[in-house]
Structures are given as structure tokens and as C-alpha cells.
């Protein structure tokens, strides 16, 4: 059976206008300024698999997630989900179908549920929006089944979100996401606000649901151990660009890009490695990024070419890397 592509993102660009106010700009004759949160980024996700994005804070992971979900104006590029262009103003039904296929699980379990709604209404919202229930009784039944599926009980539907702990709220969030029967879920740091023991429960629930329902995940995290646990493929992001796309096993066994190596080296682990390399330099300002390869100011292998020419993704075995040093076999 050929692997089917569930999600395809082609040269996605998302720019934020961060210009100073009009008057200031006119007085000081300043140009408009853009923050390139996502700059020419492409990847695809195979059906039933998990594609993860890792990177430092502010590198644009959430922005990618929000654009794929259609929550964010994209500047350029194309996003195709299950073969339909999410942004295409085509037939209404198609649009609806496409929307049905994308759901999202958010980072903060406290802000992602409307505090004034009962849990059963929260979970039923997508069912109502897409008219997926025959009648009230059917809807109630679906909600009860969903709550049980995520490890809550049907009677929890009567309660309000504040009566639940962080982990339980995240379960409610998952139940809501599943209620429109999507095939594709975006998970933006779904566990980073949770304790490790609760995190394990939620991650297990997510993998179990993936196995049962054949879900496709776009998974975002900054915790490499979580990434390792969840993903099939990993994209490493730096300042709005992807610097390495690789199967998970390759990432940890055989990291190529200097940034990936640095990330891996900085993970604290339970063995308590005593001599971790100290990282020099700070994350550059995304409004005025460096020339050439964005990573060169922090890269120990940078040469003149890195300073002037932007590297493109090149295939090396199963991995695709954007690095001159790797391409020149210096690394």
C-alpha cells in the first residue's frame, strides 16, 4: 500500500507586520517592518503518522500550527490537507469537510476551555457545528462516549471546567477535538503545562487514540524526550526555517545540522552528564535576522559561505539538511 500524504505544506510564509505606528513611521521616514515568523517552510505528513516540530522558543512552531489550522493569515505558500486546499474558496461543502479534518489541542488547559460552558456543551460544540448528530439524544450519547474514550466519565459532562485538574482538562480538550471525527490533529505543546506523571497519561492517551482511530498528528514540543516518544518524523526549526527534516531514529542516532547537535547536547537527562558543552550566543532577533545561514553566529563550523549564502535543504540518506558544512562534507 503506498503511503498517503495527509498534509502537505509548501513554501509557507507567515509574516507579521511589526511596523511602528503610522505617525511615527511617517515622521521618521521608516519603512514598514515585517517579522518573518515562518519563512519558506515545506513539509508533508504521511497518513497515520506523527510529524513533530522542535526548536527554541520563538522559532515559529506555533505559527506553523496556527497557519495549518487556518487560524492565521498566511503570506504565501500552500497548505493542502487530505488533498483539498484549506484556503481554496471552493465549494462550501468541501471547505466544511476540510475543516472537519483539522482539530487542535492547545498548550494551556486553563485557557482552552470556555469557563462558562458545561463540559458536555464544550465537547458537543463541533458536533453541533457540523450537524453530526441526528438528534439531542444521539448527541448526548456521542458526548458520553467521547468522555469515556478519553478516560473521564459520562457524568463529568454536567460539570464546569474549573472543577477539573489540568490533566483532566486536557482530556476534555482532546474529547472536543475528537468529536468532529477529524483524521488530522494539531497538538501545540499539549503537555508542557502538565506534571510529568500527568504528561505520561496524556501522551499514552494520544498514542492509544492514534492506534485506534488512525489519526495523523502534527506535534509540537520543545522537550526532545517527548518528541522521541511521539514522532515518526521530526522537523527541526530555527528562526522560522526548517534546518533538518529526518526520521526520528536518525535524529537521535545521527544528527547532522550543527543546531540539531547543539539541541541534543543541551538536553538534561537523568544520567546527569556533568560536562555538557556550554552554548554560546543568544537566539538572534527575528526582525533583523543574520545574513546567509541564520545559525551562523552561533555555529562553530561557520565559514564565509555560511555568512553570505542561505543553505537549502539537501538530501543526505533519509535526512534532509540545510547546511553548507554538511553539504561540503566538512561535518
Amino acid at each position: 500500500m503506498p503511503e498517503q500524504v495527509a498534509v502537505q505544506v509548501d513554501s509557507l510564509k507567515v509574516y507579521f507586520d511589526v511596523s511602528p505606528p503610522l505617525v511615527t513611521r511617517l515622521l521618521n521616514k521608516l519603512p514598514r517592518q515585517y517579522l518573518k515568523a515562518v519563512d519558506d517552510l515545506s513539509f508533508s505528513i504521511t497518513k497515520g503518522q506523527t510529524f513533530s516540530l522542535v526548536g527554541e522558543s520563538g522559532c515559529g512552531k506555533s505559527t506553523v500550527a496556527r497557519s495549518v489550522a487556518g487560524l492565521c493569515r498566511i503570506h504565501d505558500g500552500q497548505i493542502t490537507i487530505n488533498g483539498t486546499d484549506a484556503d481554496l474558496p471552493a465549494a462550501r461543502q468541501d471547505q466544511r469537510d476540510a475543516a472537519e479534518q483539522v482539530q487542535m489541542i492547545f498548550q494551556s488547559p486553563y485557557a482552552s476551555l470556555n469557563p462558562r460552558w458545561r463540559v458536555r456543551d464544550i465537547v458537543a460544540e463541533p458536533i453541533r457545528a457540523f450537524k453530526l448528530a441526528r438528534d439531542k439524544a444521539d448527541e448526548r450519547q456521542q458526548v458520553a462516549r467521547l468522555l469515556e474514550q478519553v478516560g473521564l466519565s459520562a457524568s463529568d459532562g454536567e460539570k464546569y471546567p474549573h472543577e477539573f485538574s489540568g490533566g483532566q482538562r486536557q482530556r476534555i480538550s482532546i474529547a472536543r477535538a475528537l468529536s468532529s471525527r477529524p483524521k488530522f490533529l494539531i497538538c501545540d505543546e499539549p503537555t508542557s503545562a502538565l506534571d510529568v506523571s500527568v504528561q505520561a497519561q496524556i501522551l499514552n492517551l494520544m498514542t492509544q487514540l492514534q492506534d485506534e482511530l488512525g489519526l495523523t498528528y502534527l506535534f509540537i514540543s520543545h522537550d526532545l524526550a517527548v518528541i522521541d516518544h511521539m514522532s515518526d518524523w521530526v522537523g527541526v526549526m530555527y528562526l522560522g526555517r526548517i534546518c533538518e527534516i529526518t526520521p526520528k531514529s536518525e535524529l537521535f542516532a545521527n544528527p547532522r545540522h550543527p543546531y540539531t547537535r547543539m539541541l541534543l547536547a543541551t538536553v538534561p537527562d537523568l544520567q546527569g552528564k556533568s560536562n555538557r558543552p556550554t552554548i554560546t550566543g543568544e537566539v538572534p532577533n527575528p526582525i533583523t535576522p543574520p545574513t546567509g545561514c541564520y545559525f551562523h553566529p552561533r555555529c562553530p563550523h561557520a565559514e564565509d559561505r555560511c555568512r553570505s549564502e542561505r543553505p537549502t535543504l539537501q538530501t543526505h540518506g533519509p535526512t534532509r539538511v540545510a547546511c553548507h558544512a554538511v553539504q561540503e562534507k566538512r561535518l
Binding site: 505520561a200 501522551l203 499514552n204 498514542t207 522537550d223 522521541d228 537521535f252 537523568l270
Partner: peptide, 15 residues
């Protein structure tokens, strides 16, 4: 329940 790199478990032990 702490996931570790290279653990390769489908289900994490949890409390």
C-alpha cells in the same frame, strides 16, 4: 513516567 530519549516504548508507564 519521565520519557527518555531512545526508550522506544509505545506506552509510557504512569501513575
Amino acid at each position: 513516567s519521565i520519557p527518555q530519549i531512545g526508550q522506544n516504548l509505545r506506552t509510557l508507564p504512569n501513575i
